[in-house]
Nucleic acid binder design. Sequence first.
DNA 1: ATATTTAAGATGATTTTAGTCCTGATTTAT
DNA 2: ATAAATCAGGACTAAAATCATCTTAAATAT
Lengths: 149, 149
Amino acid sequence: MLQLTRDGEYAVRAVLHLAAHEDRVSLIHEISEAQDVPKSYLSKIMQSLTRAGIVKSRRGAKGGFFLARPAGSITLRETIEAVEGPIHLNVCLIKKGECPKDEGCPVHPVWREAQKKLFEVLEGKTMQDLVRDAEAIQKRNSRKLAQAR
Amino acid sequence: MLQLTRDGEYAVRAVLHLAAHEDRVSLIHEISEAQDVPKSYLSKIMQSLTRAGIVKSRRGAKGGFFLARPAGSITLRETIEAVEGPIHLNVCLIKKGECPKDEGCPVHPVWREAQKKLFEVLEGKTMQDLVRDAEAIQKRNSRKLAQAR
DNA sequence: ATATTTAAGATGATTTTAGTCCTGATTTAT
DNA sequence: ATAAATCAGGACTAAAATCATCTTAAATAT
Ligand code: SF4
Ligand code: SF4
């Protein structure tokens, strides 16, 4: 359907939450509530993110999740690909020869270009950028609210 | 999975075939063989394309399919959307409020930008362009073959 | 020890994908 | 008129993906 799955969407929310609270560990329960993601589902998402090396976890009391690397080094693309697998807008972008027509196909280069542009956008924003953007939006919204009273 | 479905891929192949043979009607059977698309599946695809006003059909002997409009006015985007429905890279792009968090979400604008870039690419090539590109590729390939002998 | 917290795997309902097949409607040729 | 050709529409299906949930095991702090 050419649309992000819940896996990808939830992964972004979770990593963004960790980036916004980089100073401490966050619990599944807490992320789930704050980001509106089903708890047991989120548990699976976090496992993928951990295996992908984007977040780290500690089990047991005082355990939880935290970023494995600085928020400024984590992009939307890698967060999504950590849970959805590599993005390929069309089968012919998986690898050469995956579509038997790729050599002489005039549409193939168009998909390559489209995917390149998509990646540029998804790699252009780090989690740090997004946390800052969120703060700016918050500020703008409360200013608007103040004006409206 | 953030990937084009067979519907979209087959639709593009079919419309491209019609664009490359704009002077005459093409049969399901013929498109199916030339473009390597299952015949009965293609039949459904052509119905969607007809309903979307991209191709026209004539039934009966001497019937078949042909472009409803000049190849230069048909883009990849509309061909794909004719069979897959409107493209939305994430649910929040479906319409305002579809995701309850969209107002304060820092990721939302990123998806808007990504989709805009995708559309620019998919609208930047018409079927006429693609037919010409295909011819150019053909010429290049046969020249290479001649050199190699 | 015990309470807390993640890891891993099994399970399952629903939807989407990727097709097939059959019947009917329409057009053309004879 | 009739037969042949060709698309239109709908029913049907198998397999995979999506979106979860639940249970048990392992690790950690106190
Ligand atoms: S665009 Fe061309 S190369 Fe890519 S899948 Fe379609 S036919 Fe194959
Ligand atoms: S990116 Fe933001 S607005 Fe879009 S679906 Fe995710 S949370 Fe909602």
